[in-house]
Simulated assay, not measured.
Amino acid sequence: MLKAHRLAHSGGSADLLGWLSGRLGGWLAVLDGDGRPVLLGRSGSGSGSGPEAALAARGAAELTTRGVRSAVLEGADATALLFALGDDRVLAAVLRRPHHPGAPTLLADSAVPLALVLRAEEAARLSERAAVAEARAREAVLHLLMNGRLSTARQIAEALTPSLPDPLRVYVVECSAGRRAEVARICGELSGGRAWIVRCPVYARHLIALVPDGPAAAGPDGDALADALAAVDGDCVVGVSEQAWLGEVPAAWTQAFHALAVARGRDERHARFGPGPELALAGRFSTSAAADELTR
């Protein structure tokens, strides 16, 4: 049982089911509510069809019909042992007779960690799908802002939270792809959860943040937020726009992009767009194509 729990923790459901299959020398699978294998144990006869699968499906139907937690179904030369895992899933083992007398106990005990790890894996898949959907929705809000469709952008943003800031400053952070989650976390914390953060759909290493203008954003005595974002990693650089209204996001993003080009050459690795010639000229020819992509 310690081995089963360790496998469930370290290798997940596939490793645990494969270990059981090898230990019992039979056909093992997790079945769905219709008796179809959704996860097969690794064994010489591991197939989703055939006599073993058919016997297991009949046993699963018997288990469901009777409303019991376990069942045994005898076949021509094999025995199907079935254990309910919850969520309409069943652990099924088809073992040639005579099977080891300790097999039912091992399967019953292993069903507990297997059920738990299956639920955890399903929760992880749902969380990942939700994260992808939210990222795409945030990209859609950015596209709407770049095309001047403020009302629709606000409606979608309200559903995702937080509300779009107005006025704001645009921060463009360039960092390694593996650091973007950490950059987003710091930006959210230092802005009091009020920054609208989206992964740039054009540049894989860029994160775009619309930060409410005020103490949490750039101030006259420095920029604590830009300092913190640049400090995440030695490769992180930050460009910051001037204060802008929500309808001016396209221009503010261009300003931040220009500032980013200057920040790459500075020791502090961040720069704010200003009225001087340095930032006004920086990157003048490098942003037009990216701006076209963002507005599509």
Rank of each mutant, 00 (worst) to 15 (best):
D34R: 10
A290H: 14
L2I: 13
P165K: 00
A209Y: 05
L63K: 01
M146Y: 11
A53P: 12
G67L: 05
A71W: 05
L95S: 00
E128H: 06
L160P: 03
P250Q: 12
G67E: 08
A204F: 04
R179S: 07
A130D: 15
V198Y: 07
D235S: 02
G274N: 08
A103N: 09
P275C: 06
A209L: 07
D267M: 05
T295G: 07
E182D: 11
A29L: 00
G67A: 06
S127Q: 14
G26S: 03
A78L: 10
P51E: 15
A60R: 01
A124S: 14
Y203N: 06
L39W: 03
A80K: 03
A218E: 15
K3F: 13
L91P: 01
A80G: 04
C200Q: 12
L95D: 14
V232E: 04
A111Y: 02
A57D: 00
G192F: 03
A92S: 06
C175Q: 06
G178S: 07
R69T: 10
A111W: 05
G148W: 12
F273I: 02
R6Q: 13
R180H: 02
W19M: 00
A195F: 10
V90I: 07
R97V: 01
V94C: 03
A120Y: 05
D88Y: 00
G75S: 01
L31T: 09
A130W: 04
D15E: 15
E62G: 00
A261H: 15
E122R: 09
L260W: 00
A93I: 01
L168I: 03
M1E: 15
W245G: 15
G283E: 11
T161K: 14
A216I: 10
V172S: 11
G75F: 07
V238Q: 08
A54K: 08
D88V: 00
A84K: 00
A123Q: 13
G22Q: 15
E121Y: 04
D267Y: 04
G35Q: 03
S21W: 04
T64R: 11
G247M: 11
I197P: 02
A137Y: 03
W19V: 09
P275Q: 13
A157E: 09
G192C: 02
A131W: 09
H100Q: 12
L2W: 12
L116P: 00
A251R: 05
G178P: 06
A252S: 02
T65I: 01
V198E: 06
A157T: 11
L246N: 04
L279Q: 11
T254N: 14
S110G: 12
A263D: 12
S241D: 12
A61N: 13
A216P: 00
A195W: 10
D223V: 06
G102T: 09
A108N: 14
I156R: 10
L190A: 05
F285V: 14
A137C: 06
S49D: 14
A153D: 04
A84D: 07
G219A: 09
L142G: 10
A4P: 06
P167I: 10
A259L: 14
A111T: 08
H143I: 08
A78K: 12
P275Y: 02
M146P: 11
